[in-house]
Amino acid sequence: MATIAVERPSQTWRGGAAYGAKRSALVAAGLAAFWGIWEAYRFVGERAGITWPFTVDATNMPHIHDMLSALTKPLQPGGPRLIQLEWHWALFTGKEALLGFALGGAIGFAIAVVLAHSGILRRGLLPYIVVSQTVPILAVAPMVVVGLGTKGVKPWIAVSVIAAYLTFFPVAMNALRGLLSPDPRSMELMRSYAADRTAVLWKLRLPASLPFLFSALKISATASVIGAIIGEAPASIQDGLGGAIVNFNQYYSTGPERLWATNIVCAALGLFFFLVVLIAERLVLRRAPEHVA
């Protein structure tokens, strides 16, 4: 095997490490640039008195180092540090988001499978699925919380349902496209073997849909975190990042850096979800880069 001169696009470990180092350096450079721009804008804005689109001052644009140092300080004297609280909130919201992601992913994929097999259902149901996403999440969330609450469902699970509401749509759309992506020749081959629908689904449609599915899951990973954060407000949940944001928002004028610090944690949580999906994608789709949509 080793003697055969076929170039394998898959990365070797050394190549992967070099690639990883390069990527990390780029990410670090990006963060540094963002930091620089933020501070420079504030520095210039404060002196030049910029008031549009917002007044540049310490309240609207706290120093980034103040946000980070807020994480190391306790909220009340003698209490736990903010970062410890954020950690627990992130775990709580992460749990909601994870369930929402799984729920939304499963439902979205199931919808895609059904629609892929019936042109009639596709034409009949697709408009409603699209409409479901035009209803603002802020209108849906209270209904879900109240509706499920009366059925005795725990509030955090109701929040997961809200996250799933945001998650299922990209999965359904992209998976449907992927399931329908095999070209006529590939379908003909299956037909020549008299393969039934199930076999065509498992041997052809599903593997063909994976690149599309992963594109969707990457979108859904962050969407489920956002859904969980937003869902906590109407559910009056205090144990998560969404609850913390509502709280810090009320005391914004006295401690803006706490809200910002929480935003950073939210972003980190979303990023974490995204990266997990990315790694899963790399593991599952070990094919030529040009085949990974």
Binding site: R185, E188, S192, Y193, A195, A199, K203, L210, R287, H291
Partner: peptide
């Protein structure tokens, strides 16, 4: 019957061995 199309019509995500084995799996 078995058919060989004008184009190879192989499944990209399958290796050579697995492409050959496809009808046998079915």
């Amino acid at each position: 019957y078995g058919i060989v199309f004008q184009e190879a019509v192989l499944y990209d995500w399958r290796t050579v061995a697995k492409n050959i084995a496809l009808p046998l799996e079915l």
